[in-house]
Computed example of a mutant assay.
Amino acid sequence: MSLATPLRRGAALALLVLLLAPAGRAEAEDAATARERATAAAQRVRDLTAQLDTADAALAQTVSQVGQQVSGFLLDDEARVAAEQAAALAADRSAASARALYLSGGQAGLLSSLLESGDVSELSARAEAVQQVLSSARATADDAAARAKVAADVAARSQRQTDAAVVTAAQIALRVDQAQALVEAAQATLDGLSARARTLTEAEDAARALAQARARMAAAQTQALSRVRAQAPPAVYFDLYHAAARTCRGMDWTLLAAVGQVESGHGRNSAVSSAGAVGPMQFMPRTFAAYAVDGDHDGRLDPWAPADAVYTAARYLCSGGAGSPSGVQAALLRYNHAQWYVDLVLAVQTQLRAGP
């Protein structure tokens, strides 16, 4: 028998003793801490579900206002930032223009004037005149910056009250993500408990509370969809929806109109989304490039152009099956990978079909 054999046996025996000896104490520690952890998890879940109820209310309000004008206070911060950025840019441009004036012919002429002075008193007089010219130029730049800020504030307020105040799918997506993040955090808290802790009353109560919160969230979304109101498209979009729908056999123009309302309020809010979608039908640049149609026949493919965007949307939806009633849901889910989006578009389309 080699020396290695008893050594291996000894090591195995030592490991067995090590594993068995503290087992009772470890079991006792688990029992002592399981309830504490379950209690803490239950409180965490209660806090998150309370936040979820608030998020549900905000989501319901946002969904019910899709495509509609909302109070300007919702975008006060964005307008303020935009105004400040515009003012800063205007100030920079004014300062750059002033510097260019000083460093070009303006300054050369002034310096030449100083160098041509005949004596000290004349030099002093001319230097004072130069200082007045420079001060006047700086004052002009400051005044231009101040006027630019006022103009930026006015423009921001106007934008806030018109285009930017139209609720779209992008705002809804943010609300949905917020609510979903709360649900996932609560579920992760429960999943992190040990098997023993999950069987305790506190953890089981928390699990039931989370299930009830999920149900309330679904009910809130359903109720919000019932309050969505379709809007008659402006004449330009009305004509585009009809014409583009005719390029896809079986497509109803109301489907395009519903997508147009949900995505941008029929072009009233075509801002770039947080995901990078652009234009009145909110295309990702790569998707638009793959399906682009020159709807206005100007030789350019532009996702911001209403005709190009609507005709491209018709082509993209048609390729996804929207030409038949059985393929509409799949086509919409391809357009935006979220069931709430599909339900929202179909709710708007149903109302458009019903008419005023």
Rank of each mutant, 00 (worst) to 15 (best):
S2L: 11
P6A: 14
A11K: 11
L20W: 10
P22S: 14
R25W: 15
R25S: 10
A28I: 02
T33W: 07
T33Q: 10
A38Q: 03
A41W: 04
L52R: 11
D56R: 10
Q61T: 06
Q68M: 10
V70M: 11
V70Q: 15
F73V: 15
L75G: 13
A91T: 07
S97W: 09
Y102C: 05
G105M: 13
G105A: 15
Q107E: 07
A108Q: 15
L111T: 15
L111A: 15
L115W: 06
E122P: 00
V130P: 05
S135D: 15
S135R: 12
R138Q: 13
R147G: 09
A148L: 10
V154Q: 12
A173F: 12
L174C: 05
Q178Y: 08
Q180A: 14
A181Y: 11
A181T: 15
A181P: 05
L182I: 09
A188H: 07
A197M: 04
R198W: 06
L200N: 06
A211R: 14
A213H: 14
A213E: 06
R216V: 05
A220P: 01
A220E: 02
Q221K: 04
R227C: 04
V228C: 01
V228T: 01
A232E: 12
P233R: 07
A235Q: 13
V236M: 12
Y237H: 05
D239T: 11
L240Q: 03
Y241L: 04
Y241C: 03
H242C: 02
A243E: 02
R249E: 02
D252H: 02
D252S: 03
T254E: 03
L255M: 02
Q261Y: 06
V262Q: 11
G265Q: 05
G267N: 02
S270A: 13
A271Y: 06
A275Y: 02
G276L: 08
M284P: 01
M284G: 02
F288L: 04
V293Y: 01
V293I: 08
D294I: 13
A309E: 01
A314F: 00
Y316F: 05
L317S: 00
L317H: 00
G323V: 02
V328L: 00
L332G: 03
R334L: 00
N336S: 05
A338G: 15
Q339E: 07
Q349T: 01
R353A: 12
R353W: 05
A354V: 10
G355S: 14
G355A: 10
